[in-house]
Design a protein around this nucleic acid. Structure first.
Lengths: 210, 210
DNA sequence: TGCTAACATGAATCCTGAATCAGTTTCCAC
DNA sequence: GTGGAAACTGATTCAGGATTCATGTTAGCA
């Protein structure tokens, strides 16, 4: 009789935990290399060094694995960004540290950004939440910085958060995905700093030109 | 004997042109609604009101249709943006007009942005070229504006172009895709204007704070 | 040592859908 | 009005791959 082997996350032995983690890693690698739809379960289980059937002990479906990969790495990214910025004093330096940390992470996880984009039609909630969760945290930090007078007021902080995320995403994509570079060149980073500094800096009092 | 019916683009009768255009339209609609991979040729030919075999008279493959859709609409978008900005005087108003035109276009073609993102793993050149062609034109216009003293100097115009594109893409996505709104709210547009104005405006001479 | 639950196997099943092709219809030049 | 080229048809072919299942293996505990 089928002994209801379905493995609940969390209630795994060390052995099970290791296998799950291998599948997760292989999933990220294969989804990244071949794309979600081209990636076969066979590819993934090969990569993880397990049999095909084993896959379904840990994940309900291919889509379920995608969700797990994106959510897991999403947590990591948000933690990384928070960690990289908390120690820094002043919002503008914080922004610069944040962009640097994001680019470093993205260079290390080139594939993940592409996987997230793939997820738009596979699991649209997953896609939206990836950006929403980043944006929410970001907007909150920006609001605080505005209230503290560290950056100038804007009409809508949420829009500001999305705008800054868009900058990071597109500039990162241009170098790390289009050119397959290992890092975003200093010149590009410097340009972003310039822009952020001018747009958000309080060095000169809020101007109201003509 | 198979009469080598393969139809070359351009050498079509009015009837053929109409069918091709129907397939292109149905492709955009179905790819947008179901996603590239979930879209079946049957869906598309149904949408266009033709038989499945007809599809292959006009396109080599499903992928070939995707390419045609993206390239065709890409031309339209670039033409629209160029048209919306040429009449406007001064770079900052030009930027504002450009963003407005982009959002209007995106609201009308919500699906296309998503289709482009899908194309990353289907035809990576197509994906890259979509953004590159936009960025190239944009960077060129920005360079001219800087030389004319209409906006302040930046380290790297290409990065500036990608940054501005990223802003448009992300803010548009937030409202038109995530919220399924029919337009980007004025408040968000105003925020972008603020940012662009501060980052690029020459109202106060280039500051060099501490 | 032996028992049991957890973990693992991989061949077989079953469905989907892209692409094909043999044949039919439309259209227009003469 | 007719011949032939251009368009069109849709049932059929065929391969690929997600998921299942009957069975085998491991590891910790009494």
């Amino acid at each position: 009789m089928a002994p209801a082997v379905r493995v609940e996350a969390g209630s795994l032995t060390a052995r099970g935990e290791r296998t799950r983690s291998r599948l997760l890693g292989a999933g990220e690698e294969v989804f990244g290399r071949r794309g979600y739809h081209e990636a076969s379960i066979a590819d993934i289980t090969n990569g993880a060094g397990v049999a095909q059937g084993t896959f379904y002990l840990y994940f309900d479906s291919k889509r379920d694995l995608l969700r797990a990969v994106v959510e897991e790495r999403g947590h990591e990214l948000r933690a990384t960004l928070a960690h990289a910025t908390t120690a820094v004093v002043g919002r503008i330096p914080k922004e610069e540290a944040g962009f640097a940390a994001f680019f470093a992470w993205m260079a290390q996880h080139r594939a993940l950004c592409r996987i997230v984009r793939q997820s738009e039609y596979v699991d649209s909630d997953l896609y939206r939440d990836w950006y929403r969760q980043l944006a929410d945290g970001y907007a909150h930090a920006l609001r605080t910085a505005i209230d503290d007078g560290e950056i100038t007021e804007v009409d809508d902080v949420e829009t500001l958060a999305y705008a800054l995320m868009g900058i990071g995403d597109f500039v990162g994509m241009r170098w790390l995905v289009f050119e397959d570079r290992r890092a975003v060149p200093p010149r590009a980073v410097a340009t972003i700093s310039q822009l952020v500094d001018r747009a958000l800096g309080t060095a000169s009092p809020p101007r109201r030109p003509s």
